[in-house]
Write a protein that binds this DNA or RNA. Sequence first.
RNA 1: GCCAAGGUGGCAGAGUCCGGCCGAACGCAGCGGCCUGCAGAGCCGCCCACCGCCGGUUCAAAUCCGGCCCUUGGCUCCA
Length: 506
Amino acid sequence: MTLHVTNTLTGESEPFEPRDPEDVLLYYCGLTVSDPPHLGHARSWVHVDVMHRWLEFLGYDVRHVENFTDVNEKIVARVGEDDLGGSEAAVAETYIQRTIDDMRSLNLLRAEVYPRVSEHVPEIIDLVETLIEKGYAYESNGSVYFDVTGFDEYGKLSNQDLDEIESQGEPDERSEKRNPADFALWKAGGVDPDAVEEHRHEGVDHGGDPPEGLTWDSPWGEGRPGWHIECSAMSMTHLDETLDIHVGGRDLVFPHHENEIAQSEAATDQQFANYWLHCELFQMDDEKMSSSLGNFVTVDDAIDRWGTNVVRTFLTAGSYNSKQLYSDETIAEAEQRWAQLERGYEAAVEALDSPAASSKVEDGALRDAIDGARETFTAAMNDDFNTREAQSALLSIATAINRHLEAARGDTDRDAGPAYDYRGLRRAVETLAELGGVLGLSFTGETTGSADLAGDVVDLVLEVREREREAGNYERADELRDELAALGIEVQDTDDGSTYRLPSEE
RNA sequence: GCCAAGGUGGCAGAGUCCGGCCGAACGCAGCGGCCUGCAGAGCCGCCCACCGCCGGUUCAAAUCCGGCCCUUGGCUCCA
């Protein structure tokens, strides 16, 4: 069984064959650091992260590179806001740090490199010069444009017809471009003040002076790199001329990725990326999640509200290449799914700790269920990273655990007590941790010092409550349970006493 | 207008590439039952889908072919 992926380039599901049987070169189009990351970004990150983890699970070494676009008018537009910083570089730095923090709290595997545009201008200039030399690009008033008519395959990713694109362009007599569809590789001069103005937040005081952005010397005079060239230059610098997998948001297919292909392949005469994978976007009711509509949730807030595991369960509750609905209901569902997984895991751990667990007991149904779940999980992930199906497999392990515990308790004759399948439960716990790990879910719930203390206190309260129950003071017992619940502590009464769960997360 | 993706139960969301195991997964919500002092959790069972519409191919279609309707995203400014 091999991994299949849906390639935007062909529109079809294809068996995945990296150029090198051991290494996979993975490039993800990162973000322009001009705003705090929101859940939409997190959705793509998490799916790329799951791809990365699954490729490693399959035995590949993954060389994962993800850029930061730190040169952009949108960033300049933030200069002077609040405490973001007084220059393009400072604003970018602020958001890069924030982005890295968010990535960490989402439990993302680190990429090998996070290259920045501002640190790759020489490589960009080299690439532009190559394109001019090869006749694919031309200089005009200090700017350099890519001539799309020179690249026969232009439009192959997005299925655009060049004539169609051209006819769309507004005729502009004074344009520096030969063709409306040509795009800038290098832009003469400093930042475009109109573009900056367009991205300013209303009612924010930016101080007096018009902001300046970064500029560099080039063979064509002072200027800034164009929007698309960065990804070509950085991926070639840190990976290779041909990538195995290039991932990005669906919204980048055209023109960004289309242009990347054109300039890269024109420059190297090599295929730029063998597999183009695109993450679909969030939908809020009938519109997409976007900053301008003000309907987004920042990664930061999401983690605070629901915790990493719930957020990741939510983000992987649909396929990476299908749109996903964001609503209170869909989040609540994800909370339930995660809670079920966690409860199943914890129930198994608890049973393993009890003297009733024995290596002499064997529950075939439990073991079969685990094996089946592993097969389902593997098949699902190999089928274009079907994370929803993979979650189902995990859930079926939780169910199998509960079923086994239930059966064992049911068999109990009073004196002997229940008997648990020690090895079966161990396998269940290990499998959940291992496969859950592929989705970036963490069952280990490491408790911090304060959580330990909280645990001790809860134990104390439960002890008091138990005495009330024994004395028949159920009203008082229920009050205590409700009061704990109000603090987010879930109490569950069982035959062997009461257990509890602290509110999840870090 | 062009390009792309999609329309599956009350919600959400797999399955569509490789037609039959789909009388449609997993989950949420709802309804019974077991358990419980009660609740929750768990377990068992149930309810809810003529798979957008119309036609075709086939022994057999959610899955293939054709037409139509609708939704969403990108482009139509900059690039």
